[in-house]
Design a protein around this nucleic acid. Structure first.
Length: 894
RNA sequence: GCGGGGGUGGCGGAGUGGUCAAACGCGCAGGACUUAAGAUCCUGUGACUUAGUGUCUACGAGGGUUCGAAACCCUUCCCCCGCACCA
């Protein structure tokens, strides 16, 4: 047990007793919805969770302190395979297993001190949640977004069960190692493709707020491409074949056509011919092969099926092949092949000795088909293309398509890679699909008033088939329409269905009249900050976006997109690899919390790296945070409550401390706003270290004040420690919900107040400048002194901050004169501006001219043990410099 | 292959044209405290040098742009992640 456990428990209890983090709709307050991807209840929290939730908790706590009405909920994505596997293995009911796991995880979450509103907890496996899954399902059915179709599923013939993709290892069943086959099942699909354009277009709304790579992944997954459908007649047959192409500009170069092995036309064409056997065997082989190891299919294989298609643009006869590189599920399953201008076709044509016909050449220069070593896929000019010769290929695309449309064999078309979402799962532990099969009436939805369709308990968990089918009470039912005998659907829903709308349920988790309360949802939605692993970049986020749009369309919400901002956290590595059970390189959060306490664990995981970056787990790093927390406790010795300090009455040292605090507040606030938590922590560390060193030199009021602010700033990161020390310092209330410290504009004059210290620096800086000038060849020295230094200095004097100064420097450098004088001048200017940049904000130089010298004069004289005087330009210079700056004050060194 | 992100001290990692040998932390070295160890605190920590100053050098490799590059451009090598025959 860590020495911190008692303290942590104490504050967790107080927070919960005071309902500190519970939230209600409050139109007067600005809301902030902070959400983490809810976990699957495996029973154990892992580092990924820990990082995810620590990030979310800091954001939620910070926003709360900034005065937002923060919704920060937690729940469980509780349906799914592992529970069912556990059931089969241990003969325990999946519900019992899941509930136990959830209880365990809740406990772990509590012990880490995350500031969830637990009154809003959601468990998707509970009927009061999945009832609304079914409700939404029925609404989708009503809107014709659901349909049943035959689809292949992974089927293990020996276990007689459907397998999830993850259960197929190298084409074999994970349990019995027999070869998995693709078997066709009648399954439910959601027509997500009906929303494809919106899903694509609305990605624009997310730009800058979602990680670039997630947007790209979604785009690629949707895979929109514009092209042309072209229909070919088949020689000696009444049949036709339609291909999809994005390169209509190359139609004159077609030398063959390929069909996917599953293409229905193949059987029709080869039936009764001498090719029938060999072609069918080939198709079977390919199907099996692609199951066993899709990735190894590099070498393209094909077979001539004995038929020819007629290219409608030039009436050429081209052979039809069946080939493994054509896939049925994209386009039409048939591809026109132009080996000269498509690399895949090129490789295939070389292997099977098919002709090459060039139809695009480079603007200048020729391509020779015989000497080609790879396809020419770049842009160019059309040749061998009838009336289109001489066009550039991009404009030819449209012209050729239009021409084909007119002739009646071509038509523009948009194709997508995304396919409808298969949601049927032949498993028990999921939300039952509320459908009934009646011999008389067909497929009938369960009426909404009869929801939920409950999962039955009289089920046998065995390795074969869907356990739900073993229930005696579930399957047999009455048809809602004719009241005759009917059978229930035994498929359950994909768990992604449950997780596609849970964020809405959090806004009103106990709502009885619908999936969620419209008003609550409109208040809290959209989610302002969503946080989770990159592994959900495609599916979960796409489905949730789709649900949001659907629910909007049936009038339940008013937003297009559910998640305004997305943070995809990086992985936690150990030994350079992702922590995973199979690799055995796991550090559990529990190991750390037991030894060092929750705050240390939280702090380390935030301190280790920027949130999006992966980082290497390091026990040393953990200890560092532990040390810091202990140091903080030491710093709290003898502190008393924070009192306002009157800056005017402070000593210069104290002013410096307050000024540093003020500056730290500013940067830490910026750090947190930008989610740079590691920098925020490091800046607070720096301040704490500084404060420790100054303790003796400042009054206890200033110390208490500064330390108090340090606690407040650390509260989102290490809340337990901060609460404890806050209380120890006899401060009132919870530091967790006190106001975030404000950066005080008036204290920014910290530098002016810290005259002594700044002046010390000034003297050193001026010394540098003097040395530099003395060393520089005279002409340059003068030039610099009288021209650039003045010019730059003058501009810099007007500058507000360092960024401004940077801008000025780069402006000056663009000036041709500056460049002429090369490196020497540059060095000078750099050095001078460096000097200036330090001096200017110090506000020491308030005099009209080179004031800083005026004020520093006596110090300088003391320092150098000599006299300085202030000169005007005309007094000090000769030649060029003098005339270039009439009447301007000049360098001041004698 | 395509798409995305990277390669900086002994380490984790800062730094995206000019304030600057590189935040913060780890490790290491020295000092204080201690009988000692640990803990804690202080100092140092690229190299060479100094009383202080100073000089030189690194940002995977090689070129280029610039007065000035770790940062921008080109070439090249390596690592990680995602998709993978999408016509």
């Amino acid at each position: 047990m860590s020495e911190f456990e008692a303290i942590e428990k104490k504050w967790q209890k107080r927070w919960s007793d005071n309902k500190l983090f519970n939230v209600k709709v409050d139109e007067k307050k600005k809301k902030f919805y902070c959400l983490e991807m809810f976990p699957y209840p495996s029973g154990k929290l892992h580092m990924g969770h820990m990082r995810n939730f620590s990030l979310g908790d800091v954001i939620a706590r910070y926003k709360r302190m900034r005065g937002f009405n923060v919704l920060y909920p937690m729940g469980f994505d509780a349906f799914g395979m592992p529970a069912e596997n556990a059931a089969i293995k241990n003969q325990i009911h999946p519900r019992d297993w899941t509930v136990k796991c959830m209880t365990d995880m809740e406990e772990q979450l509590h012990s880490l001190g995350f500031s969830y509103d637990w009154s809003r907890e959601i468990k998707t496996c509970m009927p009061d949640y999945y009832k609304w899954d079914q409700w939404i399902f029925l609404k989708m059915y009503e809107k014709k977004l659901l349909y049943k179709a035959k689809a292949p599923a992974n089927w293990c013939p020996s276990c007689r069960t459907v397998l999830a993709n993850e259960q197929v290892e190298n084409g074999k069943c994970w349990r019995c190692k027999s070869a998995v086959i693709q078997k066709m099942f009648d399954q439910w699909f959601i027509k997500i493709t009906a929303y494809v354009d919106q899903l694509l277009d609305d990605l624009k709304q997310l730009e800058n707020n979602w990680p670039e790579r997630v947007l790209t992944m979604q785009k690629n997954w949707i895979g929109k491409s514009k092209g042309t459908l072209i229909t070919f007649k088949i020689k000696d047959s009444k049949k036709e074949v339609t291909v999809f192409t994005t390169r209509p500009d190359t139609v004159f170069g077609i030398t063959y056509i390929t069909l996917a092995p599953e293409h229905p036309l193949i059987n029709e064409l080869v039936k009764g011919t001498d090719k029938e056997d060999i072609v069918k065997r080939f198709a079977e082989e390919v199907k099996l092969e692609s199951m066993i190891d899709r990735e190894s299919v590099k070498d393209k294989k094909g077979l001539f099926i004995g038929h020819y298609a007629i290219n409608p643009v030039n009436n050429e006869e081209v052979p039809i092949f069946i080939a493994d590189y054509a896939i049925m599920s994209y386009g039409t399953g048939a591809v026109m092949a132009v080996p000269t201008h498509d690399e895949r076709d090129f490789l295939f044509a070389q292997k099977y000795n098919l002709p090459l016909k060039i139809v695009i050449k480079q603007k200048d220069g020729d391509i020779d088909a015989c000497s080609m070593s790879k396809a020419y896929e770049d842009d160019g000019i059309l040749v061998n293309s009838g009336e289109f010769n001489g066009l550039d290929n991009n404009s030819a695309k449209e012209k050729i398509t239009k021409w084909m449309e007119k002739k009646g064999f071509g038509k523009t078309s948009t194709q997508y890679k995304i396919r409808d979402w298969l949601i049927s799962r032949q498993r028990y532990w999921g939300c039952p699909i509320p459908m009934v099969y009646c011999d008389k009436c067909g497929i009938i939805p369960v009426p909404i008033k009869d929801l939920p369709v409950l999962l039955p308990d009289d089920v046998v968990f065995r390795e074969e088939g869907n356990p739900l089918e073993t229930s005696k009470t579930f399957i047999k039912t009455k048809c809602p329409k004719c009241n005759g005998p009917a059978k229930r659907e035994t498929d359950t829903m994909d768990t992604f269905f449950d997780s596609s709308w849970y964020y809405l349920r959090y806004t009103s988790p106990d709502y009885k009249a619908g999936p969620f309360d419209k008003e609550a949802a409109n208040y809290f939605m959209p989610v302002d900050q969503y946080i989770g692993g990159i592994e959900h970049a495609i599916l979960h986020l796409l489905y949730a976006r789709f649900f949001q749009k659907f629910l909007r369309d049936i009038g339940l919400t008013k937003f297009d997109e559910p998640f305004k901002r997305l943070l995809a956290q990086g992985m936690v590595l150990l030994g350079g690899e992702k922590m995973s059970k199979s690799k055995g390189n796991i550090v559990e959060p529990k190991d750390i919390t037991e030894k060092y306490g929750a705050d240390t664990a939280r702090m380390f995981i935030l301190f280790a790296a920027l949130p999006e970056k992966e980082f290497e787990w390091s026990e040393h790093g953990v200890e560092a945070c532990y040390k810091f927390i202990k140091k903080l406790i030491g710093m709290a010795e003898g502190v008393s409550a924070v009192k306002k300090v009157d800056v005017k009455k402070l000593s210069s040292k104290e002013k410096t401390v307050i000024g540093k605090l003020n500056k730290t507040i500013k940067t830490v606030t910026e750090n947190i706003d930008k989610y740079e938590f590691n920098f925020a922590i490091s800046n607070i560390m720096t301040l704490a270290n500084y404060l420790t060193k100054q303790k003796e030199a400042i009054s206890s009021d200033v110390y208490n004040f500064t330390f108090g602010k340090v606690l407040v700033m650390l509260a989102p990161f290490i809340p337990h420690t901060c609460e404890e020390l806050w209380e120890k310092g006899k401060n009132e209330g919870f530091v967790s919900v006190c106001d975030w410290p404000k950066f005080d504009e008036s204290l920014i004059d910290e530098k002016a107040d810290c005259f002594e210290e700044e002046l010390e620096k000034t003297i050193n800086d001026v010394k540098d400048v003097i040395k530099l000038i003395n060393k520089t060849p005279k002409n340059i020295s003068l030039f610099i002194a009288e021209s650039w230094k003045y010019k730059v200095a003058d501009m810099i004097r007007k500058a507000k901050d360092i960024t401004d100064i940077k801008g000025i420097i780069s402006d000056v450098m663009k000036d041709a004169d500056a460049r002429k004088h090369g490196g020497e001048a540059t060095k000078m200017v750099q050095s001078v501006t460096k000097d200036m940049s330090k001096l200017v904000p110090s506000k020491i130089n308030q005099s009209e001219e080179f004031g800083f010298f005026t004020e520093s004069k006596s110090y300088l004289e003391k320092e150098f043990n000599c006299k300085f005087e202030i000169l005007k330009a005309e007094d000090s210079t000769e030649g060029k410099a003098k005339s270039s700056l009439p009447g301007k004050p000049g360098i001041l060194i004698r």
